[in-house]
Simulated assay, not measured.
Amino acid sequence: MPHNTPLPTVSTLWVGGDLGWMEHLCLTSFVYAKQPIVLYHYDPVGNVPEGVELRDARSIFEPPKDLVAQTAPSYLADMFRLHLMQQTDEIWVDTDIICHAPLMPNEDGFLVGWSPWHGEINNCIMRLPTGSGALEMLMTFLNDLSRIPPWIRPMMQQRLSKTPVETRMVARYHTLRTIIGPKALTYCLKDTGEDRHACEPDVLLPVPWQYADVLFNPYGGWEGWTSDQTRSMHLWSNVLRHHKKQPVQPGSYMANWAKKLDVPLP
């Protein structure tokens, strides 16, 4: 990307009340990197860092009321990010991503990354261009409730096939909470050959979720997972809930970022 080309916009979604300190820190890291960042929301949200643009999520995807009532924000976010890919050229990021360096798609318009040990291509950071075959597959699955996803286990496929088609948008979630998450993305990218665009783990998702505690360790331990190519860090906040309630130790990865960004910690 030429030096004078504006950085692409990164976007995320928040469902619920105010941002927590961890989400506030992560969004601030993009502001610090001077990368335009948008926070989509359905309801009022507080504790938003200065420099983050707020937009109504309904401009991208307005979910049916039963979907909101009977599923979870994570499922809604998995759907939202696919609509975002189709309707905009923005890069999706989860709210627990710290920006080490500005995020940019490759020359073909892709930005996705392998989880450590190449288990899956994660959807926590995602840019699929509008011509992507994988995006077309995923959107077809979203829009056609008669389709049974080939990326879930046969037993789950059988269970889902027995549900009435008109209730299947909710039933998909109750079959597998992440049914349109990383497994779906990985399957479709491999099917189209677009998995060749996926970055190595050290670029976008250096530390495995099993070792995410090291990010709070004042004695280090995370550095060996990163490289000079690292652009971001996934905090895996869903497995770090206990850390949100504990003092952050000085000298840890998280404390150092908070100090760098001048973000207060709890």
Rank of each mutant, 00 (worst) to 15 (best):
E50C: 05
I37L: 07
L215H: 05
L145F: 01
P116V: 09
P73G: 08
H243C: 12
V10G: 04
D18E: 09
D66Y: 01
E136P: 00
L67D: 02
I152H: 04
M126D: 01
K190Q: 15
H243I: 11
W151V: 05
T130G: 02
K244G: 12
P2I: 10
P247G: 12
N256C: 13
N217D: 15
A69V: 02
W222C: 08
Y40S: 04
V112H: 02
H197W: 10
C124G: 13
V263I: 15
G113E: 03
E50W: 02
S227W: 05
V10C: 15
I179A: 02
Y40V: 07
A198F: 03
V68M: 10
G220N: 12
W92R: 03
V38D: 05
H41P: 01
S74A: 11
T175M: 10
P2H: 11
Q70H: 07
I60L: 04
E200W: 02
P116I: 08
I152A: 03
I179T: 08
F61A: 08
V239C: 11
E194T: 09
V31K: 06
G51D: 11
C199P: 01
G119P: 00
M22V: 14
V239A: 05
R196Y: 07
M233Y: 08
I125K: 01
I97V: 14
L185F: 06
L235T: 13
A101F: 01
D94M: 06
G17S: 11
K259M: 14
A171F: 01
K245H: 13
V203P: 00
P164Q: 05
S252G: 12
R58Q: 13
K162W: 08
L39V: 09
V31D: 05
V248W: 14
L205S: 13
M79R: 06
T230G: 00
Y173K: 04
L7G: 04
P264G: 12
G131Q: 12
I125V: 13
G20V: 11
W14A: 13
K183W: 08
G51R: 13
L189A: 07
R127D: 00
S59I: 11
A184Y: 00
F141W: 07
L261Y: 08
H24D: 05
L13C: 10
G193I: 10
I91S: 00
